[in-house]
Nucleic acid binder design. Structure first.
Lengths: 156, 156
DNA sequence: TGCAATTAGTTTCATATGAAACTAATATGG
DNA sequence: CCATATTAGTTTCATATGAAACTAATTGCA
C-alpha cells in the first residue's frame, strides 16, 4: 500500500534520538569512572559536584541549579548524609530549609573524582577544535533555551 | 585554606553535564507527547520507531541499531507484543532469533506519533539556522565517535 | 564429530525512579 | 489575626532499570 503521504521518521537524523544516544553513552562512561570506586549514583555525584562548586546550598537550590527533580535530590541528599559525605543543618531563617555542605570526607571524594571526569571530558572533545567546542556549547545552549520555553507552556 | 592547586568543576562549562540536562529535558518533553496518550514508555517508542523505519528486525538488531541494552529491548518487545502493537515470529534460519514487525495497530500508533515528535523537533531547533542544525549534528557525531572509541577500551 | 564458546533472548533480584500524596513551616491576603 | 495558599522536603506505592544469571540454539575448532 502506497504511503507516499506519510513521512517516516529517520532516527539518525532525529535530533532528540541522537542526543539521547550520545548522552546515555557519556552517562555510562562517566558512571564507570566513579560509580563502583566511590559508591556513588549519578544524582549523588551531581549533588557533590554542586556543593563542590558552591560552598553551601539548600536542596531546593540544588534542584533549581541542576534542573533535577526534588524527589531524586532528596533521596540522594539523604544517602549522602547517611554516608557522611555531606552535612545537613536546619536553616535558622526558614526551618523548612536545610543547609547542605560537603564534609571533609565528601570533599576528598569530590577532589578525587574531578580530575577523572575532566579527563573524560577532554577525551570526549579530543576530536573537536577549541572553536568547535565553543560552537557546540553555544548551539546546545540555544536548544536548551528552546526546550525550556516549551516547558513553560504545559499542554494540559 | 588555600586550594590554589585544585581545579573546581564548573558545571555550566562541563559538557557531559550540559548534555545530560538538555537530553533529560527533551526526553521529558518527548515523553509528554506520547507517554499517557499512547501508553508507551521511551524504550517502547524507540522499538516502534525503529520498526517503523525498517520493515522487520530482530531484537538483537534493534539493540545494535539503537545502542540500547538488550534487557531493556527484550522487556519493551514483550510488552509491545502483549499490547498487540508488534508481532514476533521465530526465525526459521536461526531459532534463537525472533523477527519483529509492526502490526496494523502498531503502525497506526507510530503514524500518529511521528508528526508530534517531528513538530517537537522543529520547535527545539527553531532558534537555529539550517547551517547551525547541520553543524550541531556534525559536532555531536564527532563526540559520539569519541565516546564510542572510549568504550572499546574497558578499564577492568 | 563432539564439545566448548558464543549468541539471542529471558528471568531474577535488588535498587532506582516516577507520580502522587504527605508533613511541617512560611507567606499572603482579607 | 487567622485561614488559605504556597514552599521545602519526605514518604509511599507502583513501575522501571541495572546487573547478573539463566535457557536454548548456533558456531567454530580441535
Amino acid at each position: 500500500m502506497s504511503s507516499g503521504q506519510f513521512t517516516s521518521l529517520i532516527l539518525d537524523a532525529f535530533l532528540p534520538y541522537r542526543l539521547s544516544i550520545v548522552s546515555n553513552k557519556i552517562r555510562h562512561a562517566l558512571s564507570n569512572t566513579y560509580s563502583k570506586k566511590f559508591d556513588l549514583t549519578p544524582v549523588e555525584w551531581r549533588v557533590l559536584a554542586v556543593l563542590g562548586q558552591k560552598e553551601e546550598m539548600s536542596a531546593d537550590e540544588i534542584c533549581r541549579f541542576t534542573e533535577t527533580d526534588k524527589v531524586a535530590i532528596s533521596r540522594a541528599v539523604s544517602k549522602l548524609v547517611r554516608k557522611k559525605r555531606i552535612s545537613r543543618k536546619r536553616s535558622s531563617s526558614d526551618r523548612r530549609r536545610s543547609i547542605l555542605r560537603l564534609t571533609k570526607y565528601g570533599l576528598s571524594i569530590y577532589e578525587s573524582i574531578v580530575p577523572l571526569v575532566l579527563q573524560l571530558e577532554d577525551n570526549l572533545v579530543a576530536g573537536l577544535s577549541a572553536g568547535e567546542r565553543r560552537q557546540f556549547l553555544e548551539l546546545l545552549g540555544k536548544i536548551d533555551r528552546q526546550v525550556s520555553s516549551l516547558k513553560i507552556s504545559p499542554e494540559f
